Structure formats: C-alpha cells, structure tokens
Amino acid sequence: TYVQALFDFDPQEDGELGFRRGDFIHVMDNSDPNWWKGACHGQTGMFPRNYVTPVN
C-alpha cells in the first residue's frame, strides 16, 4: 500500500521517517491509528498518519 505526503515531516526522534510534501511512502505497518511504519527514499521509520493520504 502506498500513501502520498500532504506535508513535509522532519523527524524529531530516532526511528521516525522524514519526507517532503508529494513524496510516495510504502506503508509497512498501519496497525496503529496514529503512527504508521513506512519506507521512503531508502529509509524506513514511523510517521504520523495525518500527514499522508491514500493513493489509488
């Protein structure tokens, strides 16, 4: 499953995934309602669910 970033996200903690608005992120785990795990630009980490939108 892929999502697209609605906003820039700069990691604040180790293990978070940084990205820029418009980036596509491969979702690896969406079991938590607020923080998902994904991959983008060769990196993996957690990111806030409300920063992304589903891609059809």
Rank of each mutant, 00 (worst) to 15 (best):
Y51L: 15
G18R: 13
N34P: 01
C40M: 10
V27L: 12
N30C: 13
G45H: 00
Y2M: 14
F7L: 14
L6V: 10
W36H: 03
I25M: 01
V52G: 03
M28A: 08
G42I: 00
Q12K: 10
R49N: 04
N30G: 10
N50I: 08
L17T: 01
G38C: 02
D8I: 03
P48N: 08
F9C: 05
T44L: 08
N34R: 14
K37G: 05
R20D: 04
D29N: 07
G15R: 11
L6F: 03
I25T: 02
E13K: 15
D10M: 13
F7G: 07
D32K: 07
E16Y: 14
H26S: 12
K37T: 11
R20A: 11
G38R: 02
L6R: 09
P54I: 09
P54D: 13
V27G: 00
K37I: 11
D32E: 07
E16L: 13
P54A: 13
D29E: 12
D8K: 03
D23W: 05
N34S: 12
H26F: 11
W35V: 12
N56T: 04
M46R: 13
D23C: 04
Q12P: 06
P48G: 03
F19K: 02
E13P: 04
D29A: 05
T1I: 13
R20P: 01
D10E: 15
G42T: 04
C40W: 03
H26V: 13
G15I: 10
I25D: 02
W36R: 01
T1Q: 03
P54V: 09
E13A: 11
Q12H: 08
D23M: 05
F19Y: 02
E13N: 09
L17R: 02
G42W: 01
N50V: 06
W36C: 06
E16R: 12
G42Q: 08
S31N: 09
Q12W: 07
P54F: 08
V52C: 12
E16F: 13
R21C: 12
T44A: 07
Y51D: 00
F7P: 00
W35L: 12
F9D: 01
L17V: 06
G38A: 02
V52D: 00
N50R: 13
V52M: 01
V27P: 01
Y2D: 06
Q12C: 15
D10P: 05
P33A: 11
G45R: 03
A5R: 01
F47N: 01
S31F: 04
W36P: 05
L17E: 01
P54T: 15
H26C: 13
D10G: 05
P54K: 15
T44K: 07
G22P: 02
R21V: 10
G45V: 02
A39G: 12
F7S: 11
V55T: 15
F7M: 12
D23P: 00
F9R: 13
G22R: 03
F47Q: 01
H41A: 07
K37S: 09
D8S: 07
G15F: 10
Q4G: 02
R21H: 14
N34T: 15
M28D: 08
W36A: 04
H26Q: 15
G42E: 08
N56H: 06
T44I: 11
S31Y: 06
E13S: 12
E16A: 09
M46L: 13
V27Q: 02
H26W: 11
W35R: 11
F47K: 01
Q4A: 04
G22H: 04
R49F: 05
N30M: 13
P11S: 10
F7Y: 09
R21N: 12
G42M: 05
W36K: 02
F7E: 15
H26A: 12
P33E: 15
E16P: 02
S31R: 08
N50Q: 15
D32W: 03
V55C: 15
K37Q: 14
A39R: 14
F24G: 03
E13D: 09
D29R: 03
P33S: 11
I25H: 01
Q4D: 00
R49H: 04
F7Q: 15
Y2K: 10
F24W: 13
T1F: 12
P48K: 09
F24V: 14
Q12A: 12
D14Q: 06
M28V: 14
R49C: 13
P48V: 01
I25L: 05
G42P: 01
H41W: 05
V55P: 07
M46A: 09
W36F: 06
D29M: 04
Y2Q: 06
P11L: 02
T53I: 13
P11A: 12
P54M: 08
A5G: 06
R20L: 10
W36Y: 11
W36T: 03
V3D: 01
Y51V: 10
Q43K: 14
G38K: 03
H41M: 09
D32R: 07
D14W: 06
D14V: 12
Q12N: 12
H26I: 11
S31T: 14
Q12T: 11
G38W: 00
N30F: 09
G18L: 10
C40F: 05
A5L: 00
F9Y: 13
V52R: 01
G45P: 00
L17C: 03
Y2G: 05
F24C: 09
R21Y: 05
G45N: 00
V52Y: 02
V27S: 00
D8P: 04
N30P: 09
D29C: 07
G42Y: 06
G42A: 06
L17F: 06
P48H: 07
M46G: 05
Y51I: 11
W36G: 03
R20N: 11
D23V: 01
Q4Y: 06
G42C: 05
C40S: 08
Q43E: 15
T53R: 11
D29W: 03
N50L: 08
G18A: 12
M28P: 02
A39W: 09
G18C: 10
G22S: 04
D23S: 04
N30D: 14
A39K: 13
T1E: 03
A5W: 00
G15M: 06
Y51A: 12
G45S: 01
R20Y: 10
P33L: 11
